[in-house]
């Protein structure tokens, strides 16, 4: 089922044309990796999917992005609702300087949920899904900043899960972590894929190859190739793709 459809998407930072005629379809319950050298537009594209680029004054978007059949840049779209449906995890773990519990419950709080029992259950469920419950169940009141980097990142994933999104965006989620934590995140992605659609930007090509079903290669703002991951990594159709993944450049 087509969940995310990008049609002739062009994006600009002021005069800078950063995304050129992007056409991409992402299906439900798949993991899609966006790869490419620095500055190729993959992060920009990721952020168009939950309108995080809105906060940059000079940003403009032309074209259409539909999620579940609805144009997310239409005038009457409530951005806050969109962001609860399309969650995001950032490169550097950024938990709120509050307790672990409050971090995960934040999404529910801003929705106006007051039912304590409901919140407690949801927090536990999200922490379990993020493979963090066992490690923090006795210290839910401790500051989130006292956790290790890998744990903080899983906490950020948990707080996103708490509002039951259908799509999770990840912007280089493991790049700031040590190899062991990074591997745990990969494992987590594999588990989450059953219930969620995941789009992940990564510089680590082996990671992209390991976790994703399909891979999109971006270069200087263009979508050069988009294919099944196993195909793209054994027999890329485009010479630029081959040069990038074999390390011949960038």
């Amino acid at each position: 089922m087509k969940q995310i459809v990008a049609e002739d998407v062009n994006a600009y930072y002021g005069e800078n044309h950063v995304l050129k005629n992007i056409n991409l379809t992402i299906r439900q319950n798949t993991v899609t990796a966006l790869i490419g050298p620095s500055g190729c537009g993959k992060s920009t594209f990721l952020r168009t999917l939950n309108r995080m680029n809105d906060y940059i004054d000079s940003f403009r978007l032309k074209g259409k992005i539909e999620i579940d059949g609805k144009d997310i840049y239409a005038k009457k779209v409530k951005v806050e609702e969109l962001r609860q449906k399309v969650g995001i995890v950032f490169q550097k773990p950024n938990p709120f300087p509050k307790s672990i519990f409050e971090n995960v419950a934040y999404g529910l709080k801003i929705q106006g949920t007051k039912d304590k029992k409901f919140i407690n259950e949801r927090v536990e469920r999200s922490l379990r899904q993020a493979a963090l419950w066992a490690e923090v169940k006795d210290i839910l009141d401790k500051s989130a900043l006292s956790l290790s980097g890998g744990q903080q990142q899983r906490l950020c994933i948990a707080r996103t899960l708490a509002v039951k999104p259908s799509i999770i965006l990840m912007d280089e989620p493991a790049s700031a972590l040590d190899p062991l934590s990074s591997a745990k995140i990969e494992e987590l992605i594999g588990e989450l894929k059953e219930k969620y659609t995941i789009v992940i930007v990564t510089h680590n090509m082996q990671q992209a190859a390991r976790v994703s079903d399909r891979t999109a290669f971006f270069y200087v703002g263009e979508l050069v190739e988009y294919n099944k991951t196993s195909e793209l990594f054994t027999n890329p159709k485009n010479k630029q793709t081959e040069n990038y993944i074999t390390g011949r450049f960038g």
Binding site: M205, A209, F233, T234, N235, T241, E242, I245, T246
Partner: peptide, 9 residues
């Protein structure tokens, strides 16, 4: 070196 694509083949 984790070769891929042409290198791997």
């Amino acid at each position: 070196y984790n070769p891929v694509a042409g290198d791997l083949r």
